[in-house]
């Protein structure tokens, strides 16, 4: 589904990603782990086409199509979804209305008819129930004044409504207490299926106990220094990033 080849990218002229290659297939969950500043968030921003970041070289394709040439909204409509680490507040814009707009764009792209507010309200209500979200979040402004946990739930709600092919979840666990973490993880798990893929970006292995990845990659200083299966996450929990980073440095 997603093929990343020797991707180099940066911000304001500084190279942050120094050659990343990654292959994500349908139905897979990949976890990208790494210490702060390793380039995890940059990687996610590059995939969704954030204008502040520059691709220096390499290629990224989604189902064979050149992703790097697409506008951000095109990427989204082609099924890429980013679950934000810090969801953006949009005062004055009704949360349900925002979601309906996004949902209708998706329907339009698929050549289907747009959904009216009443039908959408029913759909949204079902998804919110799934995530244990209070229905009053429908009528509030997008993320405005939401607690950290509600903001993250709202991201997963959007994912549930839009049903993307590839979801990139950036530190979806940060700032969550254990109950909220469980709810969010359960929500993500119900959305897992054989046709979609997830890239789970995280600093802490904790969330991997709830969302079990098929592949784990360790990112350090802009490079994937080690890839493995779920066992690698356990190893990391015991030894921490330092020893791995050191080993990689010695190999160079």
């Amino acid at each position: 589904m997603l093929e990343v080849k020797d991707l180099k990218a940066g911000l304001d002229g500084t190279e942050i990603l120094k050659g990343i290659s990654l292959n994500v297939k349908k139905g897979e969950v990949h976890s990208i782990m790494g210490p702060n500043g390793s380039g995890k968030s940059t990687f996610s921003k590059i995939l969704v086409g954030h204008p502040a970041y520059d691709v220096l070289s390499g290629s990224v394709t989604l189902n064979g199509e050149n992703l790097l040439e697409m506008e951000p909204e095109e990427r989204a409509l082609n099924g890429i979804f980013l679950g934000y680490q810090y969801p953006v507040e949009v005062p004055g814009v009704n949360n349900a209305e925002f979601l309906r707009m996004a949902y209708n764009e998706k329907l339009k792209k698929e050549g289907k008819e747009e959904v009216d507010p009443l039908d959408f309200d029913i759909l949204l209500g079902e998804k919110m129930k799934l995530l244990g979200m209070d229905s009053r979040y429908k009528e509030r402004s997008v993320n405005e004044g939401f607690s950290g946990g509600e903001k993250k739930k709202n991201e997963i709600l959007q994912m549930a409504v839009l049903e993307p092919k590839l979801s990139i979840l950036d530190e979806i666990d940060s700032g969550l207490d254990i109950d909220a973490l469980k709810t969010v993880a359960e929500g993500v798990n119900t959305l897992r299926n054989k046709d979609t893929a997830i890239i789970l970006i995280t600093h802490y292995p904790r969330i991997l106990e709830y969302i079990k990845p098929d592949h784990v990659h360790v990112l350090s200083a802009g490079k994937i220094i080690k890839s493995g299966d779920f066992a690698l996450a356990h190893e990391l929990e015991k030894t921490g990033y330092d020893s791995l980073v050191q080993m990689a440095a010695e190999k160079d």
Partner: peptide, 8 residues
């Protein structure tokens, strides 16, 4: 950008 990421 948040809107754009949602296809808007």
């Amino acid at each position: 950008f948040y809107f754009q990421q949602r296809g808007i």
